[in-house]
């Protein structure tokens, strides 16, 4: 569904992404993990059109969108959340979702009902009339997720959705992600909560120094010595530069 092919990005001399390949399939939650500064957010920005790659291609459902802007990609069914929150702070929680729904053509009561449904899905229906600015971080992330879902994306990219959530909330989020995949969505998850990643993802890509160092099922990735080295350091191989 989403395919990233040989994408490279450098910021003045520093290679942030080096020939990265990723496939995100419909009906699955795909994980993207890696230590801090590995290039995950940069990759998100390349996929969603905020960052132009120096090389490589981004394909959504087989269509090359490498040179399309974020808006066009959104219309092709690409949704995302942000690591640094991008909620509409001066609107209410419900209005945040309504902006997206109304942009998709829903009006009036239909939009409101759909909005409440979405909020219920992420567990925010009781805060519908709260101003979004005062939400704690965790709930604000869920709001971003609900808002992204309002656009009925075919591929959704989540940048650390669980940070700020407690154990039960994050378990609920995990179930929601699996459900979304089950409904035919392709989910790409960047996450630091390894329990969550290992539980919900069918495939995991590990990024280190802008390169994919490991791909596979959770169990394979977890025992991969290269991954251990990337995360824990030490004398083992890691990425050669």
């Amino acid at each position: 569904m989403l395919r990233v092919d040989e994408v490279s990005v450098s910021f003045g001399g520093l290679k942030a992404l080096d020939a990265v390949d990723i496939d995100v399939d419909t009906g699955q939650v795909t994980g993207l993990i890696g230590p801090n500064g590995a290039g995950k957010t940069t990759l998100f920005n390349v996929i969603t059109g905020f960052q132009r790659p120096d090389n490589g291609e981004v394909l959504v459902d087989g269509r090359d969108v490498t040179h399309a802007g974020p808006k066009k990609r959104a219309r092709l069914g690409l949704g995302r959340t942000f690591q640094r929150l991008e909620i509409f702070g001066s609107l209410t929680v419900l209005d945040n979702v309504l902006v997206a729904l109304e942009n998709g053509g829903l009006r009036g009561r239909h939009a409101r009902e759909a909005g409440i449904d979405l909020l219920r899905r992420v567990g925010l229906e009781r805060s519908a009339l709260t101003q979004a600015d005062v939400l704690p971080t965790g709930m604000a992330r869920l709001l971003e997720l609900a808002r992204a879902l309002a656009c009925r994306p075919r591929v959704i990219l989540l940048d650390e959705p669980s940070s700020g959530l407690d154990g039960t909330e994050s378990a609920q989020l995990g179930r929601l992600l699996v459900d979304l995949a089950g409904e035919g969505m392709a989910v790409l998850l960047v996450e630091h909560d390894m329990d969550l990643v290992m539980r919900v993802c069918t495939r995991i890509h590990v990024l280190d120094f802008g390169r994919i160092i490991s791909v596979g099922a959770p169990a394979e990735v977890r025992t991969d010595p290269a991954v251990q080295a990337a995360y824990l350091g030490g004398a083992s191989t890691g990425a050669e530069r």
Binding site: E86, S90, L91, A148, A150
Partner: peptide, 13 residues
């Protein structure tokens, strides 16, 4: 929404 977060507006189309 546009005032609060242009980036989010872009991703929502």
């Amino acid at each position: 929404a546009i005032t609060d977060s242009p980036s989010a507006c872009l991703t929502l189309g």
